[in-house]
């Protein structure tokens, strides 16, 4: 059973003359422990795909299966619970609550799930130190650099032991060095913690950290490249591509 399975997924915004097809019958299967980057020119539908997989938006047509269950048919309540327990979100603008400190921000999903505050704090601190933020727990977001804020956000995404991490342009608001840090943190989440990461980015250098790149154009998948195979395997795939010419 694939972690994420997307079948004939379509999303249409508006109607009539203002109708925009953001996704057009997309099929994608993502296995557990894969680090997938979604790339493509702006307006290609990459964010829409992420939103639909994350259950933040409803598809016009088709289905999204998370660990075998179809989320497009779930009620808002079930979906909310699924997001809380199985998914972690990382946003371009970090989206930390400005009035909470790093530990509290990190612990949010656990508190939302009714975990005891002490346990939530302990877990949050653990994740912060894993993400090299020891001693920053009491800092509020405005006292942290962009890269640090994003690492708090990653800690927050990881704290509830989710199956899937969804990241929307996680480095879009960072300089290239902090961007590299964030990308390698995500890499570690996949390598060390065997999580599935789906990341939307337009930065090739960040995408290169992934195991697989899905290219979207005009709402369709135009290419799907595995990056991490052995040289021989890669060469074989490349050869197949060449032959399909």
């Amino acid at each position: 059973m694939a972690t994420i399975e997307v079948k004939n997924l379509s999303k249409v915004y508006g109607s009539g003359e203002t109708k925009v097809t953001a996704l057009d019958s997309v099929n994608v299967t993502i296995e557990q422990g894969q680090f997938v980057a979604v790339m493509g020119p702006s307006g290609c539908g990459k964010s829409t795909l992420l939103h639909l997989i994350g259950g933040l938006d409803r598809p016009t047509d088709g289905s999204v299966f998370i660990e075998g269950s179809d989320i497009s048919k779930m009620s808002d309540k079930t979906l909310t619970e699924l997001r809380r327990r199985k998914m972690g979100f990382i946003f371009q603008f970090f989206n930390l609550i400005p009035v909470l400190d790093a530990i509290e921000n990190t612990a949010l999903p656990l508190i939302l799930d009714g975990v005891k505050p002490e346990l939530a704090r302990t877990k949050a601190s653990e994740w912060l130190s894993r993400n090299k933020l020891d001693g920053r727990g009491k800092h509020r977001p405005d006292e942290l650099s962009g890269g640090q804020q994003q690492r708090v956000a990653i800690s927050r995404a990881m704290v509830s032991d989710p199956v899937i991490i969804l990241a929307d342009e996680p480095t879009g608001n960072l300089d290239s060095r902090s961007g590299d840090e964030i990308a390698s943190t995500l890499r570690k989440i996949v390598t060390d913690w065997k999580r599935t990461v789906l990341m939307v980015t337009h930065d090739p250098r960040i995408a290169a950290y992934a195991d697989r790149i899905i290219f979207l154009k005009d709402g369709k998948v135009v290419d799907d490249t595995l990056l991490n195979g052995s040289n021989g395997e890669n060469a074989k795939r490349l050869k197949e591509k060449v032959e399909s010419l």
Binding site: D223, L227, L238, K241, S244
Partner: peptide, 27 residues
């Protein structure tokens, strides 16, 4: 007989694989 856009796709895949390899090495 040759499709230019396919050519780009193949080149890109190869470049990304190379970039991924370099990134891993650097890591």
């Amino acid at each position: 007989e040759v499709d230019a856009s396919r050519l780009i796709v193949i080149q890109r895949a190869a470049l990304y694989q190379e970039l991924h390899r370099i990134t891993e090495q650097r890591q």
